[in-house]
Design a protein around this nucleic acid. Structure first.
Lengths: 128, 128
DNA sequence: GCTTGACCTTGTAGCCACTACAAGGTGCAT
DNA sequence: ATGCACCTTGTAGTGGCTACAAGGTCAAGC
């Protein structure tokens, strides 16, 4: 499978895949006679793993850790759990922040009387 | 007021203030005899406005627009409202995404039996 | 008057996770 | 043989800062 096909199967782009390779998240695949990257099911599975983790908001550093943990199935999954739990707490924090922010924005927009900028509540709130 | 004092008053850093100046968000202030930036209440107010907008999640481009709208108080605040409403919708979208993500993460972490990586639900979910 | 130390100056490079080219090579259909 | 989609490498840009390095300024203390 060439890089474009792999990209389509994983919802990425060729650029992103090459970027992952450059940064060591994906290993260098074998090449065809014409020097094209040639991917198989192993690389597909690995990239799918990476994409799922990224979609769940894990950083590339966390993905790297998760990948190396997944590579040793006999190990305790304590480390995996701790990465995921930490990330969950981080997401909870962000959710809280965003909810507060939303409330403020909502009030601001609701209070706007659609008059002149001089009396605009939005500008007033921002001006303090 | 020198840059450090302005930074302390606005919860920023001197680096950030200089960055805002470089990118045209803040104008170049007058200088003291010793070539130090010399800020007054106008700049303080402007920076506070910027910080509030940034804290509410507006992009720098949006802040730029809001600032130029705020500078003309006789104008209709339609444009202001539209920027804020658009941003609110964007925040709502992000909130939705984050809530979904949190649910998935929560399930993943809850299902983990704290055994070996080989049976780890977290790894399984990521592997698909 | 001289030193110390906190602050300031400019300039450059780095962060994350991509994204967007440019300039050229490959491979298949017409 | 030509066109076209795809691939290659390399480099630079995005947003919103952040982190230096190498040097200048200024007030306080000795």
């Amino acid at each position: 499978m060439k890089i474009g096909a792999l990209a389509r199967k994983t919802g990425t782009t060729a650029e992103t895949i090459r970027y992952y390779e450059r940064t060591g998240l994906l290993e260098e695949p074998p090449r065809t006679a014409g020097n094209y990257r040639d991917y198989g099911p192993t690389e597909l599975a690995r990239l799918r793993f990476i994409r799922r983790a990224r979609d769940l908001g894990f950083t590339m550093a966390e993905v790297r850790q998760l990948l190396s943990l997944a590579d040793d199935p006999s190990q305790s999954c304590e480390a995996v759990d701790s990465i995921a739990s930490l990330h969950l707490r981080e997401v909870d924090r962000k959710l809280g922040d965003l909810r507060k922010l939303r409330t403020e924005l909502r009030h601001m927009v609701d209070d706007c009387q659609h008059g002149a900028v001089g009396e605009c509540r939005i500008i007033e709130v921002l001006s303090g």
